[in-house]
Every structure is written in structure tokens, then in C-alpha cells.
Amino acid sequence: MCLGIPGQIVEISDHETNLALADVSGVRRKVNVTCVAGEGLDALVGKWVLIHVGFAMAIIDEAEAKKTMDTLNALGEAQEEFEAMFESDRAMEGRT
């Protein structure tokens, strides 16, 4: 919850609600990009962002993304984030 997780913006999926698709270590996830959309939504495609509970909170560079991911892996937090995402997908379907 505190550390967030880095992801790369793949496409803008909804211009009206500021939603984008991000690639988080191979997992595609819907993220809200309102907080990082200063230069326009389309400029975000390909950028790396730090994602907190589904919201991109800062634009970072690729090297920082990699360093952050390594730290999250070492702390076991990356696994926790992915588990939370998958658990949430199940919760949406009422399968828990």
C-alpha cells in the first residue's frame, strides 16, 4: 500500500475517465492517470509510472522503475501487490 509498484503505460483506454492500461511486470492492469496527465493523456503512452492502489502517482524513468521493482521483490512486496490484484479480480466476480 505504501510502496506502490512501477508500470509502463501501454495505451489510454478511456479519455473521459483518465483510465489507461499499464504493464506491470507482464500483468496488464487498468490504472487511473489523472495525477500524471499534466502534458496530456496521449503523451503518457510508453512512460513509466509509480502506481499506488491503481492510480499512477508519479512519472519515473526506466532505470528508477527497475530499481524500485528490485527493491519490491527483495521485500516480498511485489508478490503482495500481484496477489492483491488477482484477489481483486476474483472479488469483482464474487468468487471469494
Binding site: 491503481g54 492510480f55 472479488a91 469483482m92
Partner: peptide, 16 residues
Amino acid sequence: IRMVYSPLDALELARR
């Protein structure tokens, strides 16, 4: 009780 990753998912649950 549903464990969600994001409030976005809670919004979606409300829509559904």
C-alpha cells in the same frame, strides 16, 4: 467482504 486492489474496483463493483 471483498478484498480489492483499488477503489477503482470498488466503483466497478457498485456499477455491477
